[in-house]
Design a protein around this nucleic acid. Sequence first.
DNA 1: AGGAGTGTTGTGGT
DNA 2: CACCACAACACTCC
Length: 246
Amino acid sequence: MPEGPSLYILKELLAGFAGQEIARASGNVRAIDPARLVGQRIDAIHTWGKHLLIETQAMVVRVHFLLFGTYRINEGREGKTPRLSIETTGGDVLNLYACQVREIDRATYTAYDFSADVMSEAWDPKKARKKLRAQPDLLACDALLDQDIFSGVGNIIKNEVLFRIRVHPLSTMGALPAPKLRRLVDEARQYSFDFLAWKRAYVLKQHWLAHAKRTCPRCHIPFVKQNLGKTNRRSFYCERCQKRYA
DNA sequence: AGGAGTGTTGTGGT
DNA sequence: CACCACAACACTCC
């Protein structure tokens, strides 16, 4: 479930929840008391990268699906207790499973910078480039996973973007030629929207060119599969097609 | 059966 | 203090 485009889909599905009052709330969440949500009107549902934000007058709840989180709308999962379940007076139900639920304070909520969210209308590529240039030692594989720069980008998008732009994951930001750095930023957003379209059509996986693949579709040599960078996440790359700038 | 993975956070060590 | 390795969380699929 986790990357930004999936949250974007969820936000759309939840559009009808805004303005509704919460009639019931329950779940095995420990960080908040679901009962506090009862009687609250949902003022807004937002996403920022991989965060789902549910705003009411009294509180803002942040949901993160991490690696395993899932949700159901107007249905439940057989034999599974939701982490958090919210039912509106209108009869709509949101069930959240295996996710991290937290309350955040108003200041934190207000401070969310949507210009860093690759799925947002407010996405600002210029700011992203500036952040990248400010960290010349930052590796490409780590840069794309940095949620303060590319909020919403996850490991799949990382691998696909680097393959598309033919950049080796261990390239440093300082060594990337300006047009490449620009492409990295632009493709992070572009691929995220391609991801969105493919996810909607249930054809995402078949469009992967690099992630979890064994062979380079361009030159047909085996991909290197290695955990790289500070983030130490799986990277799939072609040593021939993807140039290492360092 | 065992292991790995679309992710993040906290802890403890160096 | 910075950086790291590792554990924990919790679920599905191969």
